[in-house]
Design a protein around this nucleic acid. Structure first.
Length: 441
RNA sequence: CGGGGCGUGGCGCAGUCUGGUAGCGCAUCUGUUUUGGGAACAGAGGGUCGUUGGUUCGAAUCCAGCCGCCCCGACCA
């Protein structure tokens, strides 16, 4: 993409409305535009990141055996009246009426709708286990939206729902998502820590929040430092194998948000040098809730013994749009964003320090084309801004690496290869720079 | 929903206390000179001061209502 033809409205000054760094940087880097309290338009740069996160989430869900569907944003109220949540949900649910005065709502979540989908078609235990997910916009009319896309009212969420014939099988479904989440967040360049979460009236040990550490995190978290640096299972993981060991490897460590924190246990279970108390952002939440909805909504199947049983369900959420902000909170410096490679809006950049100069133009065009031919998605800054302005903008939007080409270097047969994260620069030939970039160095 | 704050060219702000018809920086447009860390000079355009009503000879400024946004709290992917 040529910057001269792209739409990238960056701001030099920090908008006064934004309080936390991710919100400020998203506005400054031209990723989003606010349309109302907690409601945002996604501009081209932001949308690229959102789509990349979505893609990784989708790939890892598929790998774990979940199957994608797409349910609507607008739901009829009847389903929620059936589950009893129409009254229970309160003002966070945006209720609307259509032209026939039918009661509708903008979905804050989809348990009812997925349960209805399931019961419409599934009759036998042989069609299970089943895990259906979708990635869709939700709306929760929060009393006070804040922190940009981290706590918007409208947000993009991946929500998966598992259906099993009994609790044993449901546990296996839960472990699959547990591991899928570890792999997902790892690919996103994050260290996400699974923390025991409140299971409410269902009880049991099957609810975890996935937390990333950030100074601006909303809640205090306490955990064993050894857990934070544990690697994810990785793409070789066989999801049909017994995943309990992978889960237990992590759940054996102490890790809790402030609501679940038990100071006495923390002190006794975690050696002093490994005690980590920090702040965290919740980016995922998985939950086993048994037959809460299947019973209320009569989602029943015939078991092997011919008897009807209400299915066992779990739900698994990832805040896709929230992750954009969350990742920035975890990945930035005073100059701007530092995108992890997999989700950067562009793989790399080519910067022409003297647009209009024949040698610079030619070298840049060559670099740009070769990167495209090598399968990369580069941003080419072909504008006639001053060098300082270009480099600052590049640092603000956080492209991982860049080839900077100027007349001075070309005279000596070199260009500059820059790494956004390390700040390292090296002066080498254009060929060498391209080789390094395309080799993923 | 309780408490606090804000609303003035695209962005960031001053002006409001003490009423006299709007200003600064950045950005934008034109031209010239520039060009390895947010260029300089010259010129230009752009605001019925959130909105409605009131007070006044006169309102960005005083008064009242409404709308919107932000912050703190309870709440949350």
């Amino acid at each position: 993409m040529r910057l001269s033809r792209f739409f990238l409205p960056v701001l030099k000054e920090t908008p006064s409305d934004a309080q936390i760094v991710s919100h400020q940087l998203m506005l400054r880097a031209g990723m989003i535009k606010q349309n109302g309290a907690g409601i945002y338009s996604w501009l081209p740069l932001g949308l690229r990141v959102l789509r990349k996160i979505e893609k990784i989430v989708r790939e890892e869900q598929n790998r774990a055996g979940a199957i994608e569907v797409l349910m609507p944003t607008i739901q009829p109220a009847e389903l929620w009246q059936e589950s009893g949540r129409y009254d229970a949900y309160g003002k966070e649910m945006l209720r609307i009426q259509d032209r026939h005065d039918r009661e509708m709502l903008y979905g804050p979540t989809n348990e009812e709708m997925i349960t209805d989908l399931f019961r419409s078609y599934v009759r036998s235990y042989k069609q299970m286990p089943l895990n259906l997910y979708h990635i869709q916009w939700k709306f929760r009319d929060e009393i006070r939206p804040r922190f940009g896309v981290m706590r918007g009212r409208e947000f993009l969420m991946k929500d998966a729902y598992s259906f099993d014939i009994d609790e044993e099988s449901a546990r296996k479904s839960y472990y699959k998502m547990f591991c899928a989440y570890l792999n997902t967040f790892s690919r996103l360049g994050l260290k996400a820590i699974p923390m025991r979460a409140d299971t409410g009236p269902i009880g049991g040990d099957l609810s975890h929040e996935f937390i990333i550490l950030a100074e601006t995190g909303e809640s205090a978290v306490f955990c064993d430092a050894d857990l934070v640096n544990m690697a994810a299972p990785g793409p070789e993981l066989d999801f049909e194998s017994d995943l309990l060991p992978e889960v237990e490897k992590r759940t054996q460590y102490y890790a809790a948000t402030e609501e679940m924190h038990d100071e006495a246990r923390f002190l006794s279970e975690v050696p002093e040098e490994r005690r980590l108390s920090a702040r965290g952002i919740e980016v995922g939440h998985i939950f086993y809730f048994g037959d809460k909805y299947s019973k209320a909504m009569k989602a029943v199947v015939n078991g092997p013994d011919g008897k009807e049983v209400a299915v066992q369900m779990g739900s698994y959420g990832i805040g896709v749009s929230r992750l954009v902000g969350g990742i920035i909170e975890a990945c930035h410096d005073e100059k701007g964003v530092i995108w992890p490679k997999e989700i950067a809006p562009f793989d790399c950049a080519v910067v022409n320090l003297r647009a209009g100069d024949d040698d610079c133009d030619a070298a840049c065009e060559q670099a740009y084309e070769r990167l495209i031919n090598a399968g990369f998605d580069p941003l080419y800054d072909d504008t006639d801004d001053r060098p300082g302005a270009k480099l600052s903008k590049l640092e603000l939007i956080g492209i991982p690496s860049a080839i900077v080409i100027g007349p001075r270097g070309l005279k000596n047969g070199v260009v500059e290869l820059r790494n956004r994260k390390t700040g390292a620069t090296e002066e080498i030939s254009l060929d060498a720079a391209l080789n390094k970039l395309t080799a993923g160095v």
